[in-house]
Computed example of a mutant assay.
Amino acid sequence: MNTTVKNTIAVVLGLVIGSAVNSLFIAIGPSIIPPPEGADVTTVEGLAASMRLFEPQHFIFPFLAHALGTFVGALVAAGIAATHRFKIALSIGLVFLVGGFYMVLSLPSPVWFSMLDLFVAYMPMAYMAGKIMDTRNGSSNSFGPVL
């Protein structure tokens, strides 16, 4: 398979799978740590209006969603990529970081959470995934003959 095509597929799959992991954590979070009494989390507007009711524990799953979604997406993309594994992992982190900036601007959250999220959940996770896959099996495809 052409290297460019394989790398493009790697990025697309990394974004899709990373987004799915993110969505999974966002979906299951409220069942494990229920939202505060009186919070409307069914709409973005309701969530924004209710944000003042949230306590630190309510930010655990959003942080995990962002960090693990980025990590898994970058790991998958770098594992499938034919070349430039580390750069591809970082590109996944950058896309998720842009999404994180959008959320910070769209949804009011405590400054401590915004800073933690933006500085820890995206690029450091992509960096770790890229380093793991960049060094694994040298330059061969880390996920074997899948792609």
Rank of each mutant, 00 (worst) to 15 (best):
L47N: 08
G73A: 09
Y102G: 09
G93Q: 15
P36V: 05
S106D: 12
P62R: 03
P62H: 05
F63W: 12
L107G: 07
L105H: 07
L53T: 08
R52C: 03
G79E: 01
L97G: 11
A81F: 04
A78P: 05
S31E: 14
I60P: 10
F63T: 03
F101K: 08
P34A: 01
A77Y: 02
F71Q: 12
F86E: 09
P35A: 03
G99N: 03
G100M: 07
T42A: 07
A77C: 04
Y102H: 10
E37N: 08
I92E: 08
I88Q: 05
P34I: 02
I60E: 05
V95S: 00
G46I: 15
V76I: 14
R52M: 09
H58Q: 03
P34S: 02
I88G: 02
G73Y: 05
V76S: 03
F54A: 09
G79Q: 00
A82W: 10
I32M: 10
L53N: 07
P62D: 06
F96H: 15
G46W: 13
T42K: 12
L64P: 02
L94M: 13
G79R: 00
L64Q: 07
S106N: 13
H58T: 02
P35V: 00
V95R: 00
G69W: 14
V76P: 01
A49W: 01
L75V: 08
G93M: 12
A77S: 11
G73Q: 12
T43L: 08
I32E: 07
V41Q: 01
A65C: 08
P35T: 02
L107E: 07
F61T: 11
F101S: 04
T83C: 08
V104N: 01
G38V: 12
V76N: 03
V72K: 03
L47Y: 15
